[in-house]
Design a protein around this nucleic acid. Structure first.
Length: 879
DNA sequence: CGATCCCGCCACATT
DNA sequence: AATGTGGCGGGATCG
């Protein structure tokens, strides 16, 4: 190499010279150019042959040499050659021999030539994308490294990422097995599901929070978030830390990071993820703010991963323009839907995928970690091994174990996300224009993303059929759909994608409900989608007008945004079909379409910023609605009606009313309700939104669905992070525990049914879940009477309050929390869907004591939470 | 000058 | 202890 220098003499030309690129410069010939700039200078400068140089050569000699050449040949060859072609000679002659020459060439390789992305391409070129099943291709790291002319370290970077997607698996030391992309779609599907759970919640979560906090309480802002969450989070986190540390398995971080990164794409509506956001989300540390350095490091790693994913053709680099400016981001260009296979039932499908690879003890790595915890459990279980990793596994149950960590981790993540979101939100808020309602993740950057609700809306329908659900937009929505579908199955008639899933998940923090809400014009505008969706369910009635809605499918249009869709369907289903269903939330109510209504209800919202803020929007009313839907719709309706119709939002009358009207309701548009728990268990917030919100919500929902579980999950609060599942059944048995948040969530859902309750239920923190859910009955029965109960009260309140009062729509937090009694109320699930119900997870404690819940906060909370967290509620059984 | 990200030190894991 | 793995971040390149 040096040689050239010398030859070149040019001392260093700067980069530009770099011939490398060739294309451009071709002119330059390598020779001429000094080619390597600085470096050359440094080392070789003097002569080519400097001792050093020779040394190097020698060193590399044995193998390196070869590899270099090879490398050149293969890699560069084309390029280089071309370049050189021009003048290769010159150089050559000077120095050295061929090898030298080659070397020489090498030199040229500019940085780009040595990039990980290129290296990865070469690597991938060596193996068939879809190898015959029969043959097993073994990959020797050493061999590949030498062939490609790079240090082994680089190969690890590639292989680790490929391993996260199951394209390869480690067989033994220094030995990997090439699987190709046969299982890629399955893997992605799994990741999507996991992502929904994990991140979907977050997203939602964020939204909520932000909304609540910021919007309403501007002051709090971020801090708040953390605070509230913190608790829970913290708790969890602690364990994490410890455990983590203990476990110390950092390994796999690249693999895990890679999976998480992919999940973000899959969950994002826009399919675009900015690096900074991803980094923030991926920083486990959680809130702590991570130092800047940490952030930087994360970004570096993300680049590494992104390069590999880019080589795989899964993502491409783009720039998102945000208010602030342009930011580097990556857009998912890989498959979005993953229909086939098993979707159904088992949500685990993924699991199925078993990756072969897992051999390593580590296997764990594969898992997705998803915080989703649940789903994957299976894996975990099998793995057995490493507890560490297992973390994710949730299952286990044990509270304490390391696994918890994961959860904790999860929490922390959520937190981070939340923070991130907030920021964004804030920003967004500032600029309402932005649209993206949730900007969350993706950053809607601009153009690309933008959130558009519209599309989403559509998809809901589509979903069923189409896989696409995913749509683009929704941030999270995608995830949702699946779920939705499940729920919805009916709607369209076709099963949706996910039909199976019986439950809904709520992110921990909050719950969402969908309600038919109204959409507002605005919303629509903004988020068209949302509106659409909402309607569908509503049936039509509504207006849904939005064309968007299209119900294409039939589904309901959910009013909500895309995301909503998911939920909606579910909800619908529930409602419709099953009563129990999971849907929880969705309700469509009101028919109005009119904007007015929207506005009105929304009004509150609208007025409030929240809309803007998020699309989520929530119209506040929604919440109530949701409730309604379940059992109570009335409330909502009432409220809504009120609002919409007359009132405006102002009034507060929330809850109570519902009773009266309860039934009245008409279909609303679907809206969501969101409930956020805040910190502790206590509080919840509801969001309703007509619009976008749904999306957000939907996400959540979707997540759930993904699971396939029949139950609904509710995540605990932010912190909590975990979702709980409620299943009716569960009820009692379970333990106590779960976080309040959950409960809340649960409650929501259930409300209807049966449980009963009456009362106020809500969840509070504790959530109560009631088990039961009755399915069908739920709905009806409850409605009137009880319905009010839980929902109403709570919702109403919250909603009402919110709405009414403030417009904020979103949820403010209502704080129900505390209120809530822990009791157990039942939640029903409408949500729950009947079918599945089940049991998947039941958590013990959860249902059981109300008290417990509270306590939890204290103690258990953390542990239990993590582990236990999930409650299930299944409607069916239980009861 | 900020975005990328190569490079390889070095800690930890596995043999 | 040797070797495999892979976290990590300085600092070189790119654009």
């Amino acid at each position: 190499e040096n040689i050239f220098d010398r030859s070149r003499m040019a001392p260093k030309t700067p980069v530009k010279n770099e011939p490398v690129d060739l294309s451009k410069q071709k002119g330059c010939t390598p020779e001429r150019n000094p080619i390597t700039p600085v470096k050359l200078v440094d080392r070789p400068q003097p002569d080519p042959w400097t001792p050093t140089a020779n040394l190097k050569m020698l060193v590399s000699a044995a193998s390196p040499d070869m590899r270099d050449r090879e490398k050149k040949k293969e890699l560069f060859r084309p390029i280089e050659n071309s370049e050189q072609s021009d003048t290769p000679d010159s150089l050559q002659y000077d120095m050295v021999d061929d090898s030298t020459v080659d070397e020489f060439e090498k030199q040229r390789p500019s940085r780009k030539q040595k990039s990980l992305g290129l290296l990865c391409q070469k690597f991938l070129a060596r193996y068939p994308s879809y190898p015959l099943s029969t043959e097993k291709t073994s990959i020797s790291l050493d061999e590949v490294a030498s062939i490609l002319g790079v240090e082994r370290r680089r190969i690890y970077d590639i292989v680790n990422v490929l391993e996260s997607l199951h394209l390869v698996s480690r067989v033994a030391k220094n030995q990997y097995c090439w699987h190709g992309r046969h299982n890629l779609s399955q893997t992605l599907k799994t990741l999507q599901e996991a992502g929904e759970l994990q991140y979907g919640e977050l997203m939602t979560f964020f939204q909520h929070k932000e909304q609540d906090l910021e919007y309403k309480f501007g002051e709090r802002k971020k801090e708040t978030i953390s605070d509230s969450q913190d608790r829970p989070l913290l708790d969890f986190s602690e364990p994490d830390c410890t455990s983590a540390s203990a476990n110390s398995r950092k390994d796999k971080s690249l693999r895990i990071m890679s999976q998480k990164f992919v999940m973000l794409f899959l969950v994002s509506k826009t399919k675009i993820v900015t690096l900074d956001i991803a980094a923030k989300i991926l920083i486990e540390e959680t809130q702590d703010t991570v130092d800047h350095s940490k952030f930087k490091t994360k970004v570096r790693r993300l680049y590494d991963i992104a390069n590999v994913l880019t080589s795989l053709g899964l993502i491409k680099k783009v720039h998102v323009t945000e208010e602030r400016g342009r930011k580097p981001a990556f857009k998912w260009i890989g498959p979005v839907e993953f229909p086939r296979k098993n979707d159904e039932t088992r949500g685990h499908g993924p699991t199925s995928d078993p990756l072969p690879g897992t051999q390593r003890g580590a296997s764990a790595p594969y898992q997705i970690c998803a915080t989703g915890k649940q789903r994957f459990t299976r894996h975990a279980s099998f793995n057995g091994a490493q507890p560490c990793e297992g973390t994710r596994r949730k299952v286990s149950s044990e509270p304490n174990s390391p696994r918890q960590e994961r959860q904790d981790e999860y929490c922390s993540k959520m937190i981070n996300l939340a923070a991130v979101c907030k920021q964004k939100i804030e920003e967004d808020t500032r600029n309402p224009s932005i649209t993206s309602p949730l900007s969350l993740l993706p950053v809607p950057g601009d153009s690309d993303f933008c959130v558009n609700p519209l599309p989403q809306a559509v998809f809901p329908v589509v979903q069923a059929d189409v896989p696409s659900l995913s749509l683009p937009n929704g941030i999270s929505s995608q995830a949702l759909h699946p779920s939705t579908p499940a729920a919805s199955k009916t709607e369209n008639g076709k099963p949706t994608l996910l039909p199976n899933q019986p439950f809904l998940c709520f992110p921990s923090s909050s719950l969402f409900m969908l309600c038919g809400g109204l959409q507002e014009d605005n919303l629509r505008e903004t988020l068209p989608t949302t509106g659409d969706v909402g309607n569908r369910r509503a049936e039509a009635q509504a207006t849904v007008p939005p064309a968007a809605c299209q119900k294409r499918s039939s589904h309901k249009c959910a009013s909500l945004s895309v995301p909503v869709d998911d939920e909606e369907p579910a909800a619908k289903k529930q409602t419709m079909e099953q009563n129990d269903v999971p849907l929880s939330l969705v309700v469509a109510k009101k028919p109005f379409e009119s904007p007015k209504a929207e506005s009105t209800p929304g009004s509150g919202c609208t007025s409030a910023e929240h809309l803007e803020a998020f699309h989520l929007d929530l119209a506040s009313p929604a919440a109530p609605e949701a409730a309604d839907k379940e059992s109570t719709k009335p409330l909502d309706s009432q409220e809504q009606e009120k609002r919409s119709q007359n009132k405006d939002p102002d009034e507060p009358t929330p809850g109570k009313e519902h009773i009266s009207k309860e039934n009245a309701n008409q279909p609303f548009l679907p809206q969501y309700l969101y409930v956020q728990p805040t910190a502790g268990l206590s509080s919840f917030n509801f969001l309703f939104s007509a619009n976008q919100a749904p999306g957000a919500i939907s996400l959540a929902a979707s997540q759930l669905p993904s699971l396939s579980v029949p139950c609904i999950m509710v995540p605990s609060a932010a912190l909590a992070s975990f979702p709980l599942i409620c299943s009716p059944t569960i009820t009692s048995p379970l333990s106590p525990v779960p976080n309040g948040s959950f409960s809340a969530a649960a409650s929501m859902n259930f409300s209807v049914s049966g449980l009963a309750s009456t009362t106020p239920v809500f969840i509070g923190t504790t959530a109560v879940v009631t088990p039961k859910v009755s399915p069908a009955p739920l709905v009806d029965p409850q409605q009137p009477a009880h319905p009010a109960l839980h929902l109403s009260p709570v919702l109403a309140r919250s909603c009402g309050a919110v709405k009414l009062d403030s417009p904020v729509c979103v949820g403010h937090p209502v704080t129900l929390l505390k209120l809530q009694q822990p009791s157990s109320t039942p939640l029903t699930p409408k949500s729950i869907r009947p079918a599945r119900h089940e049991a998947f997870f039941k958590t013990p404690g959860s249902l059981g004591d109300p008290v417990a819940w509270k306590k939890n906060e204290g103690n258990q909370s953390r542990n239990a939470s993590s582990v236990q967290r999930r409650l299930e509620i299944s409607s069916t059984s239980p009861d």
